[in-house]
């Protein structure tokens, strides 16, 4: 809307030529793509919903063990990671804005920033996993599970869920990073098109969703210890 009129026409002409054959016009194509993305996110919510249900059931079963398990978490690293991820959401949102404004350089820069922040997150997550491995807190795949305290069964379930849910979250992050990398590569090679902004917009929606999952995972695993005074 801030573009000169001549440029607008040009973009439209270009966009119209690139509408896929099943669509009437670019608007239809854009709204279809966006609705498709929202539906995909709905499937993701249902997918993660199953694990959150498991979490709620077992937290109800083993409140003490979950508080104890949560004390084993590195709240410092978790908080830093939350900050990193929320910042990446900000850079992503700005990248979407830049793509809508056809500011290609800004967009590429912001996408790269998002990509780097995402990699930092995964790095810190990997470090935390390694610590848990070294502290004998991985209860599966034949590794030694030797938690301190008495709530062994409940702790086991806590760490099963911790690795399961943060692991799936990390896998979704990896998928997001691949998408971001592809966007950057395409944007560096060719000029922005009318259809670019919807693609960036959709990747942005996905990225925010993955962040949002973490916003739940963080308190569920790192902060529940503060929820009750449990004698160790």
């Amino acid at each position: 809307m801030f573009k000169p009129a001549s440029q607008l026409v040009e973009v439209r002409a270009d966009g119209a030529a690139r509408v896929a054959h099943q669509f009437v016009d670019a608007d239809q194509q854009h709204s279809a793509a966006e609705l498709g993305m929202w539906l995909f996110l709905a499937t993701e919510i249902m997918f993660f919903g199953a694990f959150f249900l498991a979490y709620l059931v077992y937290r109800e079963w083993y409140p003490v063990a979950f508080a104890m398990g949560s004390r084993q978490m590195d709240v410092m690293l978790g908080t830093v990671n939350t900050g990193v991820l929320l910042t990446s959401s900000l850079t992503m949102a700005l990248a979407v804005r830049a793509s809508e404004m056809s500011q290609r350089r800004w967009m590429i820069g912001l996408l790269v920033a998002t990509l780097l922040l995402g990699m930092v997150f995964l790095g810190i997550k990997g470090l935390e996993y390694y610590h848990k491995y070294a502290e004998h807190l991985v209860p599966f795949a034949g590794w030694t599970f030797a938690p301190a305290g008495e709530q062994r069964t409940g702790m086991m379930e806590f760490f099963n869920l911790y690795f399961l849910m943060t692991g799936l979250h990390a896998l979704h992050m990896v998928a997001g990073l691949v998408m971001l990398a592809l966007l950057v590569i395409v944007a560096c090679r060719s000029p922005l098109r009318d259809s670019s902004s919807i693609v960036v917009h959709n990747v942005g929606l996905y990225w925010h969703f993955v962040d949002l999952v973490w916003v739940y995972l963080f308190p569920f695993f790192y902060l529940v210890s503060a929820s009750g005074s449990v004698a160790m």
């Binding site: 498991a54 077992y58 079963w61 795949a141 069964t153 086991m156 379930e157 099963n160 399961l164």
Partner: peptide, 17 residues
């Protein structure tokens, strides 16, 4: 495959889930 016991009572899980 991995022994992540969400349903296994021996690991604190619930088969009914």
């Amino acid at each position: 495959g991995l022994g992540i016991g969400i349903f296994d009572p021996a690991m604190g899980g619930d088969p009914l889930l």
